[in-house]
Every structure is written in C-alpha cells, then in structure tokens.
Simulated assay, not measured.
Amino acid sequence: MRPEILTATGVYFSLVRPDPDDIRIEDIAHALANTCRFAGHCQPFYSVAEHSVRVALCSRVPSWLKFDALMHDAAEAYLGDIPTPLKRLVPEFREVERRIEDAIEARFGCHQIHHELVKAADLALLATERRDLMPAADNGEWEVTLSGIDPLPARITPCRPAPRRGCSSRRSKNTPRSISSPVREGDCMKKLTFTLPYPCCCQTGAVCPPTARRPRPQSRKSA
C-alpha cells in the first residue's frame, strides 16, 4: 500500500514524497475546517482553520507576515492535529511533518511559518484557547508550556465546522479587504488567502516572485 491520502479535491497526496503541485488551498481550508483542535477535547468544537485565521489576524503579526501565519499549521490538513506529547513520543513524525511543510512553503512561497512573531501569536492564541475552550484542571503540561504567556483580552466564541462547497477561490470585486471575527472557518480561510498581502502562486498558478519587502527566509531550526 502506498503512503498516500485522497484529498477533498480528488488528489492523491504522498506523505513520503509530497509534491508541491499536489497541494491545493481548497484542500487545506476544507481539511482544517473539519479538524478539531486539541484532538477533539476542547469545548465546543473549534477548528484548526479558525485557529489559523485568528493567528493571522492577530495584531501582533505584521502585515508582511500574515500569510505565513495563516499557513503555520497547514501541514495538519494532511496529518491531522496530533497532540504535541504524542509527537515527542514518535520522533519520525517530525520528519514527515517537515517534508510536508517544505512542500507547502515551495507551493505558496511562505518561508516564515516558524518566525518568532508567528510563534508568539500562536502561543498567545493557545493561552486564550486554554482559558476559553478547555476545562479547568490542575497544574500540568499546559502550565509549563504557557508559563509567562498572557491570553488575549477578547474571548473566543468558536464557529461551526461548515465551510461552503463550491466557493470560488478567485478574488472578486466584492471580496473584502479585511475579515472581522468570528470567522467562517474554511470558507473564510480561502477568502483571507486571497486578500492578504503578497499574492502567491495559489492565486496566479505561477511561481511566486521575490518580494523586496518580505525578509529573507531564516534557516530552519529543528524542533
């Protein structure tokens, strides 16, 4: 059996040799909108797509970095939301994840998904999600991970996992320049992709040209 999965758009995607040409923003939006954060243990349902959009819209993320922030968990569209403690128990998983992240970066030109500002916004959202969406519990892994991290002031009211089918991924005259929260998950993730700065190959079908305002990619550090 080949290590492949069939995506929502009918593409067979290899987990061993991921091809950037097989990556579709529609697949990422659809899968993440239907993938619950925290292995499904949050209350109520809260999708990875909504988390990704909230990170991208966070005021701590500068405009030139928002597309990368939107895509920081895009590999989970193909791997699922694996709890971090399980990742630590299976070191080989990180290598599979890295290959898929590299393919996503090559497809969309987002080379800053591990930027420190994205990580800072991600942790702020994590602290907020812990406060608003998870049950109360005694000290544990959460307190270690979130030590010194303050949640955002606004409380999270999750959306429902209902991205609309057949939504055009092309930008139209009526596409808003900004999207207010709460977001419409998969549909909103696709729309936001086409309104953020630095249009990439997901919009043009071509290789992303270099952009003077986008900082040079930093070297990847092993997790």
Results as ranks from 00 to 15, higher is better:
N174L: 14
A127Q: 12
R2W: 13
L79S: 06
G140C: 07
K119T: 10
A206M: 14
I156Y: 03
I156R: 02
L152P: 08
S181K: 05
C110F: 01
S172Y: 11
C110Q: 12
S181I: 02
G140Y: 02
L79N: 08
L196C: 09
M189R: 06
R54H: 10
E129H: 11
L146I: 06
D122F: 06
S180N: 15
G140N: 05
E105T: 12
I156F: 03
R177A: 15
P176F: 02
S222E: 11
I179H: 09
H115T: 03
A212N: 14
R2M: 15
W142H: 12
H111D: 12
A124I: 14
I82W: 13
C58T: 12
H51P: 11
D21E: 07
G148V: 13
G166F: 10
C36V: 08
R177D: 12
V55M: 00
F38Y: 12
C42N: 15
P182W: 00
P85G: 06
K119R: 07
V55Y: 02
I104Y: 03
W64L: 06
G10R: 03
P163L: 01
G140T: 07
A121R: 02
G80F: 00
I25G: 05
T157D: 14
E97L: 09
T175E: 04
L79C: 04
R107D: 06
L117F: 07
L6E: 09
L15R: 03
A29E: 03
E105D: 11
L57M: 12
R170Y: 12
L70S: 04
R164D: 10
K190M: 08
A212C: 11
E141W: 11
A127H: 13
S180E: 13
L6M: 13
T9E: 07
R165H: 07
M71V: 07
P163Q: 01
F45T: 06
A69I: 03
D102L: 14
T157S: 10
N174G: 10
A103Y: 01
H114I: 01
F93C: 04
L196M: 05
V96N: 15
P3D: 04
A137C: 06
P199R: 04
H72S: 08
L192K: 09
L123W: 09
L152W: 01
I82V: 12
T195W: 04
R94E: 13
R216H: 04
Y46S: 02
A56I: 00
E76W: 11
R160K: 09
C200P: 06
A136E: 08
C36H: 08
G10S: 06
F13L: 03
T145I: 12
P215F: 00
I23N: 00
R130M: 09
Q112V: 07
F108T: 09
H30I: 11
V118A: 05
Y198P: 01
V144E: 07
A49K: 07
I100L: 14
C201Q: 14
F67P: 14
A120L: 04
A106C: 15
Y46P: 07
A33F: 05
A69W: 13
S181D: 10
Y46G: 03
A212H: 15
S222W: 10
